[in-house]
């Protein structure tokens, strides 16, 4: 379970997040909704440690947690970026198995076996040796999800997972997210699409831009 208490974040003296509180129980899906510029991405970046907060606390499984500096590989927070950010110089397989080998010290065979299971689960069989430029948007997104899952994250975060895809792929994304929920994956999904949020979420958090 992840808890945020009184999180405050400013950019150049401008408050983006003000005393924000939230709680994501294990295996649940939290959707964060709100208009553009409300600070959804910023919140996700704070949770995943890409931004530091100005004040407030993070608590992960009952322990204080510092997203920006945590080095415990049992406490990874995975991220699926809006534009996926796959590594263009690596094949699908290498995108997925690089970090498990370098960071989790898995053997190549081990990382590939685990990777393959996830590849099959997310319908990417046969794409292992392709490079990212050879994939469709939906396939890229699934590779990004597998790459994050291969690190055995505690929580998986998505920034606007429907925005870079064709509208008819929205349902596929819903199915993937709900499928991972079946495996008890705790997920945080940022979106400005209310219907999408309602379809997937156990809990919806609204953020609004803060007037200066």
């Amino acid at each position: 379970m992840l808890t945020l208490k009184n999180i405050k974040k400013q950019f150049d003296g401008r408050t983006i997040l003000d005393n924000l509180n939230l709680e994501v129980p294990d295996g649940q899906i939290l959707a964060i909704v709100g208009p553009s510029g409300a600070g959804k991405t910023t919140l996700l970046r704070c949770i995943s440690g890409l931004e530091t907060v100005d004040s407030g606390e993070f608590i992960l499984d009952g322990q204080p947690y510092d997203p920006a500096n945590n080095r415990d590989n049992d406490k990874v927070i995975g991220v699926v970026f809006q534009d996926f950010q796959l590594f263009p110089n690596l094949t699908v397989k290498d995108n997925i198995t690089l970090a498990p080998q370098l960071v989790l010290k898995q053997s190549k065979a081990d990382a590939e076996a685990r990777g393959q299971a996830l590849i099959d689960q997310l319908n990417l069989s046969g794409k292992e040796d392709l490079y990212p430029y050879q994939l469709s948007g939906g396939q890229k997104q699934r590779v990004a999800i597998v790459r994050a899952l291969a690190m055995n994250p505690k929580i998986l975060c998505y920034d606007e997972p429907t925005s870079a895809l064709d509208p008819d792929l929205r349902q596929t994304v819903e199915q993937i997210i709900l499928g991972l929920k079946q495996n008890q994956m705790t997920q945080i999904v940022v979106t400005h699409d209310m219907t999408f949020a309602e379809n997937i979420a156990d809990q919806i958090l609204r953020v609004e831009p803060i007037k200066a």
């Binding site: 995975g78 991220v79 590594f87 110089n89 690089l98 960071v103 790459r147 690190m151």
Partner: peptide
């Protein structure tokens, strides 16, 4: 793009792993 460094970072690659495995091959190309 900065996103390449950030995705390496959330995957917990070190700075030198990120440079050697991700960034430098793209730069060389």
């Amino acid at each position: 793009p900065n996103g390449q460094y950030e995705s390496a970072r959330v995957l917990r690659l070190t700075r030198s792993q990120t440079l050697l495995r991700i960034v430098i091959p793209q730069v060389v190309k």
